[in-house]
Amino acid sequence: MSAPNADTNPIYGPFFGVMGAASAIVLSALGAAYGTAKSGTGIAAMSVMRPELIMKSIIPVIMAGIIAIYGLVVAVLISGAIEAPDKYPVYKGFLHLGAGLAVGFSGLAAGFAIGIVGDAGVRGTAQQPRLFVGMILILIFAEVLGLYGLIVAIYMYSK
């Protein structure tokens, strides 16, 4: 049995991959939770006077949930690729850490944006229904930030 090269395949190589997978899902879930909670308070305040608008105003919550799905996809991809140190060079660990951080922090930022936009947009839609289209557009632009992180993460993962 040939000993693994200690320079390219150190024993701590998989640590970086594991941290990448964990940071992908943890940071995305943090952003998604903030987005859900912040837009949830807006929906709760708005629904007291306009309960018929609940179906429309659930959209920010669903978009925040999608951010967590991005993180889940990358975390599952990275977890599937982690192996024992002799088959897992530290270069791959760095790539996986980078992929996880890319989707994690992008998801965190997108979740913050969705929360703030969802809160204000849902309250405004109750007063002026024409705001709905604008709110959807802004929410899509906020959610695309998370999608950019996912694209970069998948590109790094495929290196």
Partner: peptide
């Protein structure tokens, strides 16, 4: 191989997700 199939299925799931989201937004509107 593993990486290609993972990437293709990830793209597939993200596509399905956005189709479902688009249908929901259209329905809500």
């Amino acid at each position: 191989n593993l990486v290609t199939s993972n990437i293709c299925s990830a793209a597939c799931s993200v596509l399905v997700l956005h189709i479902a989201l688009g249908i929901f937004i259209y329905k809500a509107y």
